[in-house]
Amino acid sequence: MPSIKERLQNFLNGDNFVSRLLGKAEEKTGIKKYYLASGSICSLGLYLIFGYGASLVCNLIGFVYPAYVSVKAIESPDKKDDTIWLTYWVVYGVFSVVEFFSDIFLFWFPFYYLGKCCFLLWCMAPFSWNGSQILYDRFIRPFFLKHHRTVDSVVSDLGGQALNTAESVTRGAFKGAVTQSFENQKFK
């Protein structure tokens, strides 16, 4: 199994957006792609530990690239990539809900945003045993299969109640508008 350094060098020598971008930077600065990438990764890591706005940067990392490749997946004829990114978004959504309630305590930890960023990168990693696939298969899917009928009935009941409420509000608003119109004509 190749080391992290070898995998990074293979990635940087491949034909991809990052490699082309770093190639242009290498031409202009004379600094090798590997050092530019390593320096950028270290700088990002330090910023996520000490920087102001680390939450925003971390959320952008967890959202921008996955959103971009999700749109590409939607536009491609292959449906396998759709499933991969739908799985990521399900895990991202569950993580966001859990994080909402635990963020008050967790953001005080010095390496929280660095850890969160690493977690999100693991969830979107381009291999079959990435975080989203593992978390979905081990936790989310079994929970869903166990409780989906109950959730479906609650959603159906809420949908019916929402429809009834909307009808009542619409009738009341229409009745009020008709009454107001009638009173306006009566006084003219």
Rank of each mutant, 00 (worst) to 15 (best):
K79R: 13
A54G: 06
N10L: 15
S43W: 13
N16H: 08
D81M: 07
C123E: 06
S76V: 00
Y52V: 11
E27D: 13
R20E: 15
V71E: 03
V169D: 05
S132G: 03
P110Q: 02
N13M: 10
L46T: 09
P77S: 10
M124T: 05
I84R: 12
F109K: 07
V91Y: 01
D78F: 09
S132Y: 02
E167H: 05
N16M: 05
P2E: 14
N10S: 15
R171F: 12
K24F: 13
K146M: 14
C123V: 06
I104Y: 14
V69K: 07
L12D: 08
L114E: 13
A162I: 08
Y136M: 09
G30R: 02
L56S: 07
S132H: 02
D137A: 12
E26A: 06
L121E: 08
T170C: 03
G131Y: 04
R141S: 14
S43T: 15
G45I: 02
T165Y: 12
V94S: 01
S43C: 15
G172R: 07
I104H: 08
S102M: 12
N10H: 13
S43Y: 14
I84T: 12
V155Y: 13
H147M: 08
P126V: 00
H148P: 01
V18C: 12
G39W: 03
A67K: 02
V154Q: 08
L106H: 05
N130F: 05
K32H: 13
G115T: 02
Y68H: 10
D152P: 00
Y47H: 14
T179Q: 10
L56Y: 05
V155P: 02
G51R: 01
T170K: 06
N184F: 09
W108S: 09
K72E: 15
G176R: 07
N59P: 00
S3D: 13
E183S: 00
G115S: 10
G93L: 07
W129V: 04
T165W: 10
F127E: 14
H148T: 06
S43F: 15
L114Y: 11
L12R: 01
G45P: 09
E27R: 01
P2S: 14
K33A: 00
D81T: 11
R171D: 09
N184I: 04
W129M: 13
M1W: 08
S153P: 04
Y35W: 10
L60C: 12
D152E: 14
L12P: 14
S70M: 09
L158I: 07
F17R: 06
E183Q: 09
V18K: 00
